[in-house]
Every structure is written in C-alpha cells, then in structure tokens.
Design a protein around this nucleic acid. Sequence first.
DNA 1: GTTATATTTGTGTACGTGCACAAATATAGT
DNA 2: ACTATATTTGTGCACGTACACAAATATAAC
Lengths: 355, 355
Amino acid sequence: MAKQIKIKDIAAMAGVSVGTVDRVLHNRGNVSERSLKAIEQVLAETGYKYNIHTSAISLKKEYNIAITTPIAVKGEYWGAVRDGIMHAINEYSDIKLNCTFFFYNQFDIYSCRSSFESILEQSPDAVIIGPTFKSETQRLCKELDDKHIPYVFVDAVIEGTSPVSTYSTDQYACGQLLGRMLDTFTPEDSEFAIMSSQRIGNERSSNSLARKKGFQDYFRSKGMQNRIHETSFSVLDPAESERKVLSFLNENPKIKGMAIMNSRGYILADILRKNGIKEICLISFDLTQNNIKGIKDGTIGAILCQRPELQGFHALKSLIRQLLYNQKEETVNHTMPIDIIVRENLPYYREFFEM
Amino acid sequence: MAKQIKIKDIAAMAGVSVGTVDRVLHNRGNVSERSLKAIEQVLAETGYKYNIHTSAISLKKEYNIAITTPIAVKGEYWGAVRDGIMHAINEYSDIKLNCTFFFYNQFDIYSCRSSFESILEQSPDAVIIGPTFKSETQRLCKELDDKHIPYVFVDAVIEGTSPVSTYSTDQYACGQLLGRMLDTFTPEDSEFAIMSSQRIGNERSSNSLARKKGFQDYFRSKGMQNRIHETSFSVLDPAESERKVLSFLNENPKIKGMAIMNSRGYILADILRKNGIKEICLISFDLTQNNIKGIKDGTIGAILCQRPELQGFHALKSLIRQLLYNQKEETVNHTMPIDIIVRENLPYYREFFEM
DNA sequence: GTTATATTTGTGTACGTGCACAAATATAGT
DNA sequence: ACTATATTTGTGCACGTACACAAATATAAC
C-alpha cells in the first residue's frame, strides 16, 4: 500500500520529460547517453513498477502471437494446453492480441516443418512452442533468435535454444514417482511392465524416454531392475494389441503393475476391462477424457498430471510481460507440480488454475 | 478479440448519459424507473463487461478489508493462507486496499470473540473469514449480514451464513482418499490407526471430524471397519505421547498404517524416526515445514494438501470482484483439489499458483 | 401559477501510460 | 557562420471508467 512511483516522478527526478522516460522504458532508442544513464539510475533506485492497468488501456499496438503445438484435441493433453492459453487471452482481453495457432501432426515431421515455415513467414511478435522434433525446433529457434522474436516453451525444453522462459515438468522425476507408486500399490514380489505404444515408425518422444529412465532408475536403486518387463503395442490396431498384451501377461503372470510413459493408458484400460483383469494396477499420464473414464471405473489406478492448462496460461502471460514490459526474466525453467490423481480426488481437479 | 462494448455505447443504446449508466452499474441509486429498466435491458442484451484496467485507475475509493483466521505462522497452514492473500494484494496493488489481519487463537474461544468484536467495531467494507468456532462465526456473520458487509470463507464453510463465496476442500473426500491410500500402501491384512492429537480441553475441528468420517466410511464400505484402531496423544507433552504411542503400537502389532486428521503428523513422525520404526506408513495433512521434513526422510509416507495459498488468493480476488463490480456470483462453493504429495513430487509443489 | 425542494440527469475532469507530432538541440557540410 | 540534416526532447491527446458538481426536470406546498 506504499505509494506507487509514476513515470512522471521518474521524469522529475531524472530532470527530463515523461516522453524520454517512456523511450527508455520501451527501448525505443533516440535517447542521449546522458539522459539514458540518469533515467536508468533513477529507475534502479526507485524500483519503478509498471501500472499494468493503465499501460494496457493506452496500448495502441497490436501483437501477433504464433502458437505452435501438436494438434490440440478437446479433452486431451494439447487441448488442455490450448485451454490455458485461451484463458490467458481472455484474462488479457484488453490487450490487442492476434493469436494464430499453427498445429502440426506430432507424428509427421513434414507437417511440423511446414508449420514452422508458416510461422517464419508471418514473422510474429512472439511465439509459443510446444516442441516435438528436436532439430526442427532448434532450427526454428535459431531463426527466431536472428529476428529477435521472443519465444517460450511449453511441455518440454529443447537444448541449444534461448527462450524467454519455459513451462514444463521434470519428466525424470515423473518416472521415478511412477516407479515408486507402482511399487507401493502392488503386493511384494510383484513384477512390472513398461508398455510402449507404437505408431508408424518408431519415433519416441524425449519426454517418454526421460520418464522411462526415471522409472528404471527407481527400480535399479532398489535392486529390482530384473522385475521390469517391457513390451509394445500398436495404437492403431486394437485387436492385434489386445492379443499381444494378453499373451504378454500370460507369459509373465507375476506382473501386477503396468506403466505407460504417455497418455495412452486408456487403450490398456480397455483391454483390462474387457477381459475382467482386476489385479493389475495400471498407471498412465495426463488427465484426458479417456483416462478419466478408466480412473472412474477402476481400470486405471492412478494418473500423473503436469498441469497443462497452467503451462499454457503462464506461457502466454510470460510473453505478454516480455512484450509489454521488457521484463527479461533470465530464462527461468518453471517446473510444474506433478499431480497424482486417483478416483477419490478426481472430481476436484477441474481446471482450477486462474491464479 | 471481438470489440468490447463500452459504457459510452451502453449509454447511447439506452438513450441516457454515461453518468446514469454508471449509477446503475454501481447501485448508486437516484435513477428513475424508466432509465433503470432501459439500461438493465441493454446491459443484459450486450453482456457488458467491465474493463478492470480502467476502472482500477479511476477508482478513488479506499476499501477496508478485515481478515480473520487462526494465527498465521510462517510455514504452517494458516501462514500459507495468508501468503495467498498477500499475493492477491500484491497483484491488485493498484486498488487501494487497506487490509487488516485479526488473528485469533484457534484453541481459545475468547480470543476469537475479541477478534470478531474488533472487526465489527471497525466496520470494514468486506471480510475474509477462516472459521473455527461455529456459533461465534454464525453470530459474526449475522451482524455482517445486517450491516450488508460481504464476506467470504476460506478453509471451511459454516452453515446458516450467506457468504459471497467460499473456498474450501471436501473434507469427507479427503478422509476417503486417506483411507484408500493407507489401504493400498500397506500389505494385506494390515490394521490401521487413527491418531487424534489433543490439547487442553477436547475441542475437535469439524474438518477433522469430516475427514475421520470419510476415512471410516472407506473401510466400512470394504467391510474392514474392524481393522481400525483409535488412540490419542498430547500435542503439548511429547515424552508422554511417545510412551503412549509406543505402547499402543505394541498392543496392536498388525498396525501398518497410521492416519492423523490434521497437520500434526510430524509429531508422530518424530516418534517413528526416534525409535527406528520403518514398516509403518504415516499419512498426514498439510504441506507444513515440519511435515516436509518427514516426507523427505521417509517417516511420513504421504501428505494430503488443499492448496491454502490458492484459497487465500481467490478469497481476496472474489471480494474485490464483489466490491468493485458487484458481481453477485450466487454463493459458489469452490472446492479445491486435494493434492497427494510424496517424496518424489515434493520439490515441485512450491507456491505455484499465481493464475 | 409560483416558489421551494427533491429527484434525476448530464458534463467535465482525473487517473497513469502510450505514442504521434512538434519543438529544440546537436552535428555535418560547405 | 549558415544551411541542411540528424538526433534528442517535450507536449498533448487518447484510452475507458469513477465521481464530483452543475444542470435539468419532477414533485410538493401554497
């Protein structure tokens, strides 16, 4: 409740006019060395803070923001990220934001390339990236760096880039947590399965790999690495998958815990449900519509979530701060909480974020 | 990005001046029946939304807000609630808020009475209540209702009151979740203990009671109610408590799960640690400094949390909406998520709210 | 119908910042 | 020293809302 310092005050203290202070605050240039120094000094001393409210209403500029993520489907992971972004757009409805979504197929590198090309073509003021393909993303970021276009990451961080900030989860910790949970949820001497879902080709996301490593390391640290089995199933051929999974479980009857490193747990849940298998504890990722169903009827024991809405929300908020106020928050990695969701606390995990 | 409708537009459409529209929006009275109807009609049709930014800067009025909760200690539950409130105060630093905290001792009804009296005396514009004593709180609310002073609840809801909104957790669900967790975390045929912490007198918070009921119902629904034991220990006399707990465990050697319905789990954790008891899974509430220690060294198996910061944050935000924009959001009960925190996901549960 | 009073309505200024444009000053070229 | 040009600085209006105050209209009393 201390009295806020205004631009007018800064100007008076530095012995210049408000216009000059404004130029400094917005890096608009055309300021003499002497004025610059004086103003910066005063700014540092007083710890001036923008009045978001007034700057928002006075703002004439329209910002073009490009958002590129895997295709956002309602009720799925990237859909939730988009919801968070939309929520932020709504909250900042006074700022003229021109947001364009460039969705790509995360299993098709060409679609990713074409999205990225379109982005560079339109030359936006800032970009939100939900990355999948590493070198493609690095290439995009390099171009953005050259053009001095700021960008933020959601969901994952790509090395060798310089984003304004990133919003992601510690996937290795997710894997460890997953291991710990399966371990405690199952009887002693149980064995465990890592289920890999496959599509065409055998692309693996780096998120899945990090999770898997954490999972394996958990059991390794307990000297239980020999209790882990691994198999794969096809996302696109349910019948074939069912046969494969059942015969796998037949061959390994001691398996009581089942882990999958992505959000496809519901496919396994369908198989378990259909065949009345109840003694296996299945844990999946992401609070998607399909997985919620599994949680409700008990075919999925638990879900690990990483607050996709919050990620999207903060990503846009961070960009706005960057664009409007030049707040260079030296590339912080914001690591989101990992929520554990089971049947009993499911109803309360609605998009309760907004903070 | 649709063009926002302004007060000026409303005025033109209703055939009146902006001043009259302003009077309607702020319930300032002195408006003729005819104008009122016309304006309300237009408002309903257009779905006018305040521009928070501009209304904040133009606002001259200073709002006095009273906040009364049990004593807020840094690192404990009510400390976190206060942190959330402070966070909201900070976010709305442009609005002239005069917040006064009236802390009371939650184990002393007289201190509560005196706090409430002070509040009524200062006659604030709005109140945030973290309730403990039911009839005291009801009495306060009755007076506030008479004076048309809006109030919100955090942490718990008191029946027979009419708050603007409430931010709390479903304690019964917490208890059920606790039961489910202890059940799955322990070997078959385990028995369970409900540990009640006692102070002077035997006051029990309604939160604890609801949790306990949920806990018992979980086991009842599984036909396992006979596996629950119950005992109590003193918060104020650690040595005596230690003796009591140890002898209790001796008498009931099959106990492998231990539940406490409040945040005092760390006291039990100390006993377990000191005596090298490792086969018992202890679950407590609230992410307090003391409990965090137990989680880290494994003496506490898990903690259930109810986002106290978020509760405080939203409580104040809700009041601001009420005061500034008269948004009567018909007494919604906002039920917070119940977070499950174990060692692996602990590091990421920092006050990550801000949304 | 006239005056006094109460009620309703409209107008104008302030809030703090963004930005366009005009004014002032510095620099370079002759 | 005098233009011409480039650089730097200051001024003023706009943004949409809150609110004080003046103006207009309605109501009451005689």
